[in-house]
Simulated assay, not measured.
Amino acid sequence: MDESAARIQDLHEAEKKLVLLVETAGEALDVLTDDGPSDEDAQLAIRERSGEFTDLTNRYFALVNDVQLAVRRHTHFLTQTASLPSTTKTIPFRHSVAGEQKELEIWTGSLTTLQQRIQQIKRVAQGEQHPQAPASS
């Protein structure tokens, strides 16, 4: 099997794990939303459901880790082979993983929004300090 076929197979496996991830989350939500027992063994049922929920959350996080690892491997490979454009102009580190780049994009967007809001507040404050500003009735 050549490298391309192996990478495609690995991505296919990661896709299957994403489906399992969503199914596992659904199962965990189902455990949480179950009406519960109406009989005398309520404590036993609660312990069983708690154990089931713990197992589902452990499976969920294991799947998340597996998918993240696959995405990181492929992103690293694509960066190394120059299949992805260099990101040195947008982020301060050359070899980043997708999560770090996305986090930087989010923080950059947040800072831009905060700067715009601060400027708006300054304009409003300056408008209220000037007696020439028309007062609204």
Rank of each mutant, 00 (worst) to 15 (best):
H95D: 14
Q9Y: 00
V19D: 00
L11D: 01
D10A: 02
D39M: 04
E15Q: 10
L111T: 03
K89H: 06
Q119L: 06
T75R: 02
Q132I: 04
N65R: 09
R7V: 14
S50G: 15
W107I: 11
D39K: 04
Q116I: 05
G99V: 09
Q9C: 01
T112W: 02
A133I: 02
F53W: 02
R73I: 07
D41Q: 07
V67K: 02
I8R: 15
T90V: 09
E100D: 15
F61A: 03
F93H: 10
A6K: 15
L11N: 04
T81V: 14
V31M: 06
T90M: 06
T108F: 05
P85G: 02
A14F: 01
K89E: 07
E100C: 13
Q132N: 08
I46T: 07
S137K: 12
R47N: 10
M1L: 15
Q68D: 15
D41R: 06
L21A: 02
F77Y: 15
L111D: 08
L104I: 10
S86P: 04
A6C: 14
I91H: 12
V22L: 08
A135G: 04
S83P: 00
S96V: 13
L20Y: 00
E3F: 02
Q80H: 07
G109S: 14
L111A: 04
K89I: 01
K122V: 08
S136E: 08
F61V: 11
T33C: 03
N65M: 04
S50W: 06
I121R: 14
K16S: 06
D35N: 08
Y60C: 06
A62P: 00
E105S: 13
E27P: 00
T112N: 09
S38Q: 11
D2R: 03
L21N: 01
A6W: 13
L69G: 01
D35R: 08
E105W: 08
T108R: 10
Q80W: 05
I8A: 15
I91S: 08
I46Y: 05
G99Y: 13
Q68G: 13
S4F: 13
S137R: 11
Q132F: 03
D30H: 03
S50C: 08
A125Y: 05
A28Q: 03
Q101N: 10
Q132W: 02
L18M: 10
T81S: 14
L69H: 11
L84T: 06
E27D: 02
T57I: 15
W107Y: 03
P92W: 01
A42D: 14
M1P: 10
A45N: 11
A135V: 10
V71Y: 12
T112G: 02
M1S: 14
E23G: 01
L32E: 07
E40L: 15
D39E: 09
I106R: 12
V19F: 01
E15F: 05
V64F: 00
I91K: 05
G99T: 13
P92H: 05
E40A: 14
L29C: 07
Q120S: 11
I46K: 04
T75G: 05
Q101I: 13
A42L: 15
V67Q: 09
L20F: 00
D2C: 12
L18D: 00
D35I: 03
E27H: 03
A62E: 01
Q101M: 12
F61S: 06
R94W: 06
E128S: 06
E48L: 05
K89S: 06
P131W: 04
D2T: 13
E23P: 00
V97T: 11
A125C: 10
